Computed example of a mutant assay.
Amino acid sequence: MSEFKGTPGPWEWWTSNSFLRLSSKATGKDGGVIDSYKMSDGHTSLSVKYEDMALIAAAPELLEACIRMRNQLYAAGYESKEKSLNPTKELLWQTEQAIDKALGK
């Protein structure tokens, strides 16, 4: 399995000073994931690593896969209300947390 080489998470949006940027809590760098800037010709652009671009582009498919995995675990009789020592229940709990975050819950 390949290892993610992008900016470590968790990520969070910052909106102070009327500038929207995506920052990594792990690195503490404000705008370290996505930041905008004005180029010398007056146009705007984004500063973002290639690996982070790939993850962002894959987000809809990743969410769909998580939802399908969660639904299959439910169909197999697993439930998860909290973290568990059972690896499958732990995976289900982690998947539910990621789905909720992606859906803004």
Rank of each mutant, 00 (worst) to 15 (best):
residue 93 W to N: 07
residue 73 L to C: 08
residue 56 I to R: 05
residue 84 S to K: 05
residue 66 C to E: 06
residue 65 A to F: 00
residue 102 A to Y: 05
residue 32 G to V: 00
residue 80 S to H: 06
residue 52 D to N: 07
residue 24 S to I: 00
residue 26 A to L: 03
residue 60 P to V: 03
residue 101 K to G: 02
residue 48 V to R: 08
residue 57 A to D: 12
residue 35 D to P: 01
residue 19 F to T: 10
residue 30 D to Q: 10
residue 21 R to L: 01
residue 54 A to F: 00
residue 4 F to P: 04
residue 95 T to C: 14
residue 37 Y to D: 04
residue 3 E to R: 07
residue 83 K to N: 15
residue 45 S to D: 12
residue 34 I to E: 04
residue 16 S to P: 03
residue 83 K to H: 14
residue 39 M to P: 01
residue 10 P to A: 02
residue 69 M to E: 08
residue 95 T to M: 03
residue 26 A to T: 02
residue 1 M to P: 07
residue 74 Y to C: 08
residue 40 S to Y: 05
residue 31 G to Y: 00
residue 9 G to F: 01
residue 102 A to N: 01
residue 17 N to T: 07
residue 46 L to G: 03
residue 14 W to D: 14
residue 46 L to C: 06
residue 40 S to H: 03
residue 8 P to N: 12
residue 4 F to Y: 15
residue 93 W to D: 10
residue 84 S to P: 10
residue 36 S to C: 01
residue 4 F to N: 08
residue 101 K to A: 12
residue 13 W to R: 15
residue 50 Y to Q: 09
residue 80 S to G: 14
residue 21 R to E: 05
residue 29 K to L: 01
residue 10 P to E: 02
residue 83 K to D: 13
residue 27 T to V: 03
residue 75 A to L: 06
residue 51 E to L: 06
residue 97 Q to R: 09
residue 87 P to V: 05
residue 29 K to F: 00
residue 17 N to I: 01
residue 44 T to G: 15
residue 78 Y to Q: 08
residue 79 E to H: 11
residue 30 D to P: 04
residue 9 G to L: 09
residue 34 I to D: 05
residue 43 H to S: 13
residue 19 F to Q: 14
residue 79 E to Q: 06
residue 57 A to S: 12
residue 7 T to D: 02
residue 81 K to Q: 11
residue 57 A to Q: 07
residue 86 N to D: 15
